[in-house]
Design a protein around this nucleic acid. Structure first.
Lengths: 204, 204
DNA sequence: CTCACAACTTGCGTGTCACGCACATAGTGC
DNA sequence: GCACTATGTGCGTGACACGCAAGTTGTGAG
């Protein structure tokens, strides 16, 4: 998982992937939600220091490149939950994992706003957030000892959590909102998780 | 809302829109999830009896056309909830509304499978399901008397419900599953809603 | 009933894009 | 050091989204 754990090839791949994604997002932000069509593939590739053809080896659409950071973030959610102590109640563990993952650095507001308020990016942004569901569901199933093939609880809960994160992001971006993202996230998650306030051993 | 309530123009528009969407979905199903690239715009337009340029006036991508039926379905969810008796508890009302809307005719398995198991359609399919959230959130807010601007509950619950519907669909499509969609839906929704079982005034 | 206006459809032209293919280059393991 | 494989790149090919400017059809006022 660490950069050190991969060979040179993998690290180079990862680096160019991130370079392209970063360049794509930066250019998109520069043009704003309405000028997305002006962000040409050629520009992204040039800004990332690769050929347009190479850009296309990593991403098959601009939207995918621009939303790559969010997708990567989502992929880490399962891992974050697994790293919580096993005796922690599910609700508490999920909240803690999500908060930690999504507020380690406070998210980049411009980037989030870009991918969440640009119609042409909506589908890809949803994909990015939804990528959290699979790993999350597995982690929840592992923690609760349920069979994901029969019981819908893990998958539904994962979807609900992903949805809550999304709603929290949207709300946090609204103008005139001064809350920290952590607070918004907590409020949103408390709507779908049987989580007790700080005190109380409420399992499930 | 009824066909009769619109003038000729609107009804023609609606008709061609549905014709294009229907043709797109049908052709996509014929080619299967792996042959989506073989479904050309020209074919869709021809099958729907319009020019390729007209197809493009209604939809700006094949994915959008193929998923149109699901998007239309999602737009009705808010209305379905509003038509439930006002004294019904929220959970019961949502479940009843969703069940009624999504099982009036049992959904077309081939269509659902197409849009839910084709990677290139994933983003658009998510968009289609997510379209339920806005109206649903408003209807929930109206029913619970909460202010959607401050309270996250309506939006989060709407997202959770939409997610549950999606998960239910995925599970229902799994091979070897003989459950009715209504049953699967009920099971999924019960994971995110404080709803009593179908029979008996049994709390939780 | 007629006529002017608005909405819709259509053909054409343009710029962009995704991707297959073939070749050059760099990393890897024996 | 040497094959071998993965990756970067240039080029060519279809396909597509969309602007524009007719042509066509529905709508409402006089």
């Amino acid at each position: 998982m660490n950069d050190e754990a991969m060979d040179l090839r993998a690290r180079n791949s990862q680096a160019t992937r991130e370079a392209i994604g970063h360049a794509a997002l930066r250019l998109a932000i520069e043009q704003g939600p309405n000028g997305l069509a002006l962000v040409r593939v050629h520009d992204i590739a040039t800004a990332a220091g690769v050929s347009p053809r190479t850009y296309n080896n990593y991403f098959s659409s601009r939207a995918e490149a621009i939303c790559a950071f969010q997708a990567d973030q989502s992929r880490r959610v399962g891992q974050a939950l697994r790293s919580r102590p096993a005796d922690e109640p599910l609700g508490r563990a999920v909240v803690a994992a999500v908060i930690e993952l999504y507020t380690d650095p406070e998210p980049d507001k411009a980037g989030l706003r870009m991918i969440m308020s640009t119609p042409e990016l909506e589908g890809e942004a949803l994909r990015a957030f939804t990528m959290a569901e699979g790993p999350l569901a597995e982690a929840i199933a592992a923690r609760t000892g349920t069979d994901p093939g029969r019981d819908l609880f893990p998958a539904v809960t994962a979807a609900a959590v992903a949805g809550a994160i999304r709603v929290a992001g949207r709300h946090w971006l609204e103008p005139g909102n001064t809350e920290s993202f952590a607070t918004t996230l907590r409020r949103a998650l408390s709507c779908v998780l049987p989580v007790a306030p700080p005190e109380g051993p409420l399992g499930r």
